[in-house]
Nucleic acid binder design. Sequence first.
DNA 1: CCCGTCTCGTTCGGATCCGAACGAAACTCC
DNA 2: GGAGTTTCGTTCGGATCCGAACGAGACGGG
Lengths: 213, 213
Amino acid sequence: MTVTIDGVTTVLHRSGPDGEGVCVPDNCPCDDGACTLSKYVRTTAESRSEGHHTLEETESAVATMLAGMSVDMESMAAVQNIYRAANAVRKRLESSVLAPHDLTWTGWVVLWVVWIWGDIETRHVAAEAGISKGTLTGVIGTLEKRGLLKRRTHPDDARRVLVSLTPKGKKLMVVLFPKFNEEESHVTAALTAAEKASLAGTLRKVALQVEPD
Amino acid sequence: MTVTIDGVTTVLHRSGPDGEGVCVPDNCPCDDGACTLSKYVRTTAESRSEGHHTLEETESAVATMLAGMSVDMESMAAVQNIYRAANAVRKRLESSVLAPHDLTWTGWVVLWVVWIWGDIETRHVAAEAGISKGTLTGVIGTLEKRGLLKRRTHPDDARRVLVSLTPKGKKLMVVLFPKFNEEESHVTAALTAAEKASLAGTLRKVALQVEPD
DNA sequence: CCCGTCTCGTTCGGATCCGAACGAAACTCC
DNA sequence: GGAGTTTCGTTCGGATCCGAACGAGACGGG
């Protein structure tokens, strides 16, 4: 059975051990005992409604139930935790270190990249910061308006723009970096040095898998 | 020496082994051989301008140089890699799985939360998805307009709003979840099963440190 | 020298993201 | 029953985020 939604066609199949039978989307989660996807969805809802630790119990229960099946629980747990930790860390660093200086996360990242590189082309800043060129134009506009950095046309190529920190911007970075780094220590305080190193190495593997240097 | 920027005051100090002397923000990076912050900034710029692996060399060089000093390189590496990996993974999953269905990352997260919980209050969706109530109002508006979920006033408390998936929304989730999960496998393909488990566990520690359940 | 192609940054429209403020609803106390 | 307080979701203004399209600039070939 195939299903087409928004012009995209997908072949559906019951994610049971024998692979037979057909999932009926409108019935998910359904009462078919052999349908492991429905089992998974139902178990997740049950563990959540009890207000327990969200991801830990969900992952454990579903991992046992779907072992060997088509749902890759280990990868799912890894990805969900990457996203969850990144979200939590960003919010903490934003609220405790950046917001008092009226800075956003991306504003900080852009300032950091420009601080490190000095006179740098905007296309490189966008690539380093991981944002689009269009977004960078807006962020640079905001930081420029704040008097933290300045832009100038490339002497050899009028299409290109170079940015650098103003004296005010440099001063701000010297003040903020130690504070930012101190909060980085706080958010990872629960980890041993070995865990931090292992974490960084493993995440580097993931990042390089997705976007090779 | 203290410096005040935007109403926030910070005490500056040279991050050298003896802790003496004063950093002059406008001169950073400066020529003072004992100033390790300037060393760090300069080394980072140098390694980058050569187009080598960005974070690996930077971290190694600076970790050696600043060992025992005030800059916490291990925590910094951990946090930067969390953010970088999360960014890369999100972009990949968005472009390869979600965009063909005209979904954003947060739209997906909200659909996922509502799919798992069934009839759920919007304040809980916002908390689960890690976004503000104001943002959720907009995202729900978009998904409602797409015909993927519907809202109704809480029968017992007119202040509250409940959301659930429409049949079209449920069908979409059944199609998308396997694809999303398959791509989760792809983005973590470079890791062993043990690394994935260790990664998830370590990140869970970080997330719980920042936002206890 | 001119034309075609490619690159760069900006603009555009739409989506997300936030905190603060607001109106409506619920609750508690007198 | 009314007043005061708290909670909920929405609205607001500003910032970010994207891909696509555009104008300007650079380059190569004829």
